[in-house]
Amino acid sequence: MTPNQEGPVVSFDGVGKIYDDDGLRVTALRDVTLNIPRRRFAMIVGPSGSGKTTLLNLVGCIDTPTSGRLRVCGEDVGAMSDRELTDFRSKNIAFVFQNFNLLPVLTAYENVEYPLLLLGAAASERRQRTMQMLEAVGLADKRGHRPNQLSGGQKQRVAIARALVKGPAVVLADEPTANLDSHTGAEIIALMRQVQEQHDASFVFSTHDPQLMSHADDTFVIRDGALADRRVKEAE
């Protein structure tokens, strides 16, 4: 599977998502059609329960659409098996979570190294790229610390390093500044912008944070499960 390097990184074509919970059908997304360009800061915004997280889960290939066609990196992910989706995520997609979701039993270094292990990277390559990313987020000196020995901002920096270490096509960030104070949030946003530019990655955010939204290249407004508005900044 060789992902398409041209065209939008994510393409929704009439995508719908319906949850069936013991016969209770809930429509989370309806007929969403949108393209997220590559190498951009894209924001999915909207009120709580509007379907932002569902949309992000679909982009992250941890959920599948019930209708329509979803392409990520040019691949039709809706047709993939669970194993194919897992391998696809491993190679192309990274996550930055609101609660950081670092593995508590691993050190900062090991957390960053973990995605490379899943990819089967050689030890020397793992070492080099892990240290490179820790240095990029300014935490090389904290590499031996466990998550419980790090502050919230440091944890999110480790999470960003972990997300970018494998050079993913798209980084998904679900409310990445929600658990940080405004000063740390600003630092994290600046860091993400910096590494996005350095690594040519595409970032897709789900957020309520006006501070973060102000950095958006593209903004997609979701309301009641449908795309309500789209604001695209012209590429420089």
Binding site: G60, I62, D82, R83, T86, D87, R89, S90, K91, A94, F95, F97, N99, N101, L103, P104, Y114, P115, L118, L119, R162
Partner: peptide, 16 residues
């Protein structure tokens, strides 16, 4: 459970 979800999201297979 949350750690399992995180690892799976990062690309850990069910077998892993």
């Amino acid at each position: 459970t949350s750690e399992i979800g995180t690892a799976r999201a990062m690309g850990l297979r069910r077998g892993g």
